[in-house]
Amino acid sequence: MMPVRALVLTGYGLNCDYETDYSLKLSGAESHRLHVNELIHGGKSGSQSVLDDYHILVFDGGFSWGDDHGAGVLLASKLKFNMGEQIEAFIQQGKLIIGICNGFQVLVNLGLLPGFEGNYQERRVALIGNDRGNFINTWVNLKMNPESPCVFTRGLSHMELTVRHGEGKFYASAEDIDLLFSHGQVVAQYANEKGDEARGQWPMNPNGSLRDIAGICDPTGRILGLMPHPEAFNHHTNHPDWTRRREALLRQGKSIESLEGDGIQIFRNAVEYIKNAIESGTLNA
């Protein structure tokens, strides 16, 4: 059986590559960390792209170019001018792209999101400075959209993850937000402890995102951008309440069921999707 191959970018201030790579490996992928310049210049021959070897492309978190000119802007430009066509071909082949935090910022600056009507060139939505003005590291509750075509979040209705960003406020025109909702492209929304939308309330909505939007996908559901970090919930001890939960379970004569963190499911879904696509021959690669 052909392995599912994932590419996690490194370099220029990206700093979540190790745990993202680890999460993909846990999910059954053959994952590699690859420097941005290796992606751009590393093709085996003139016309062939490194991307051809991979099924999942991950724009992971960090501070590419120190967030100069706006978070994700420079990495997006560099990729657009050097790799624009190859990335678009990668999408057309039916492969998967996920951008997390800085990676989400890259995806909106590349124009891969929102990707209305298959247009992957247009910068149409933005991630701008948090309303409260500061970087924030905090755990959030997410309400996942079961109606979304997103392949990464299949079967998920709710998830807790950490956010760590200064520019995470999702912003778009009212018409575009309506479009996103009507196409099921709003994948994740910040929520309260009960799982209902945060309605802009801080700190449940940590950045002031319009309509509590934490993540969106393209209309095919194969490109996902997410401000929270699923790779940082790779182990049960990543959750801020785990010692409290362990103690509560202990009193009922139980113990923690699994060492794995809930965030892994997002990567597992991606790997499963590709496995099925390979088996059914639907990848155009």
Binding site: C16, Y18, G61, N134, F135, N137, H229, E231, P240, T243
Partner: peptide, 19 residues
């Protein structure tokens, strides 16, 4: 809260704890 204390994904006990 203004410092990324979970990068590298290995956080077990964070600087802030409790209910």
């Amino acid at each position: 809260r203004q410092y990324d204390h979970e990068v590298q994904g290995g956080s077990v006990i964070k600087p802030l704890v409790g209910k």
